[in-house]
C-alpha cells in the first residue's frame, strides 16, 4: 500500500506572551492510502496544530510532511488540490444556503458550474441534506450544519480527508449517523485522518490509532494491537451481598491459574486475567465449589481508556491543558 500521509519529526512552537508553547514536539506519522487513521488525545494535545500543518494552514517549524505524495511545505498549492479539511470550527458560510456553499466550493476547486451541480447533488443525497439545503446555513441545527460541512470537504473528491473532531457537539443519534457516513467514505477508498477525544469513536472507525499527549505520539497501532499491548483482559464480578466476605472470595480467586490480579472494589471484584476464555470455566467451578452466587459477571477487553491511562499515567477525561504541563 502507498502512503497517503508521511510526516517526520514535525514540530511547532507558538510564542504567546513571552512564553513558548511547544504545541507539537516531534511527531512521526505514516498513514496508508485508504486507511482511517484516528488521532486521539485530550484538549491541548496538539491535534489541531498537527492537522493545520498537514493541511498547509500553518507553516511547519521543522520536520517534513508529505500528503498524497506532495511535500506540503514545498508545494502547498498542489497539496491543497488533493486534500479536504473539515475544521474544528466547521467553516460553513452561514449567510449562504447549503447549496450555494457547495456550488461555490466546487467552483473554487476549478469545476464548472454543471460539474459542481452534479457533485453537489450526489453529496446532498449521501448526507441527506435535501430537506434543508436551500435554506440559509445560519438556520441549521448543529447536526445539519456538520453534515453540510462534511459535504463541503468532499466536493472536490479529495484523496485525503482531514476531519478535526467531526462529532464534537453532536447528540448520540447524530453521532451514530456521522459514523455511518464516515464508514461509507472509507469503503469508497478515501483516506481519512480524524482527530477525536472519544475512545469509542477511534475504536469504532479507525484502522489505526495514534494517541497524542503534550505534542507527542505516546502509542500507535490498531485498536486491537494497543489493547493487546496492554495485555490482559478484565473480569468484573459482583457476588450476592449476603454470602462470603468479598475479600475472602478475592483471595481465593487470586490462586487460580492465569489470574494476575483480583481486587475487591465497591462490592465487586475486578480481575485482571491473561486469557479470559480459559479462566472463566475454572473461575465458575471455583465459585460453585464455594457455593457463591453472583449478581453479575462481565468480561471486558481493555479499552483505549486503559491504554491512555497506562501510557500517560492519566485518565483521558481529566487531563488539563498543555499550559499546566511540565
Amino acid at each position: 500500500m502507498t502512503a497517503a500521509i508521511v510526516a517526520h519529526e514535525l514540530r511547532k512552537t507558538f510564542a504567546a506572551r513571552r512564553r513558548q508553547i511547544e504545541a507539537v514536539r516531534g511527531i512521526d506519522l505514516r498513514v496508508s492510502a485508504g486507511e482511517v487513521f484516528a488521532f486521539l488525545g485530550p484538549n491541548g494535545a496538539g491535534k489541531t496544530t498537527t492537522v493545520r500543518m498537514l493541511t498547509t494552514l500553518l507553516p511547519i517549524d521543522s520536520g517534513t510532511a508529505f500528503v498524497a505524495g506532495v511535500d506540503v511545505g514545498r508545494d502547498p498549492v498542489a497539496a491543497r488540490r488533493r486534500i479536504g479539511l473539515v475544521g474544528q470550527r466547521g467553516g460553513a458560510d452561514l449567510a449562504a444556503t447549503g447549496r450555494e456553499n457547495l456550488l461555490l466550493q466546487g467552483q473554487l476547486y476549478g469545476s464548472d458550474r454543471a460539474t459542481a451541480e452534479r457533485r453537489a447533488a450526489e453529496l446532498i443525497e449521501l448526507f441527506a441534506l435535501g430537506e434543508f439545503v436551500d435554506r440559509r446555513a445560519q438556520t441549521y441545527s448543529g447536526g445539519q450544519r456538520r453534515r453540510l460541512e462534511l459535504a463541503l470537504g468532499l466536493m472536490h473528491n479529495p484523496r485525503v480527508l482531514f476531519l478535526d473532531e467531526p462529532t464534537t457537539g453532536l447528540d448520540p443519534h447524530n453521532r451514530a449517523n456521522l459514523w455511518e457516513q464516515i464508514r461509507t467514505l472509507r469503503e469508497s477508498g478515501t483516506t481519512i485522518f480524524l482527530t477525536t477525544h472519544y475512545l469509542e469513536e477511534a475504536d469504532a472507525l479507525a484502522n489505526r490509532v495514534a494517541i497524542v499527549d503534550h505534542g507527542r505520539v505516546v502509542a500507535e497501532g490498531t485498536p486491537a494491537e494497543l489493547k493487546r499491548e496492554l495485555g490482559s483482559q478484565r473480569i468484573r464480578l459482583t457476588p450476592k451481598a449476603d454470602g462470603t466476605p468479598i475479600e475472602e472470595i478475592a483471595a481465593s480467586l487470586r490462586t487460580l491459574p492465569l489470574v494476575e490480579e483480583a481486587q475487591p472494589a465497591d462490592g465487586a471484584i475486578r480481575l485482571t486475567v491473561a486469557d479470559g476464555a480459559r479462566v472463566l470455566p475454572a473461575l465458575l467451578d471455583r465459585l460453585r465449589e464455594r457455593r457463591i452466587e453472583l449478581d453479575s459477571l462481565t468480561l471486558a477487553e481493555p479499552s483505549l481508556d486503559d491504554v491512555f491511562l497506562a501510557k500517560t499515567g492519566r485518565a483521558l477525561r481529566d487531563t488539563g491543558d498543555l499550559e499546566q504541563a511540565p
Binding site: 498547509t56 494552514l57 479539511l85 470550527r89 466550493q105 476549478g110
Partner: peptide, 16 residues
C-alpha cells in the same frame, strides 16, 4: 466573524 466560524480557514485550504 469568518475567522471564528472557520470560513476563512476553509477557503484557505482550497487552492484559490
Amino acid at each position: 466573524v469568518e475567522l471564528d466560524s472557520g470560513v476563512i480557514e476553509r477557503l484557505r485550504v482550497t487552492p484559490v
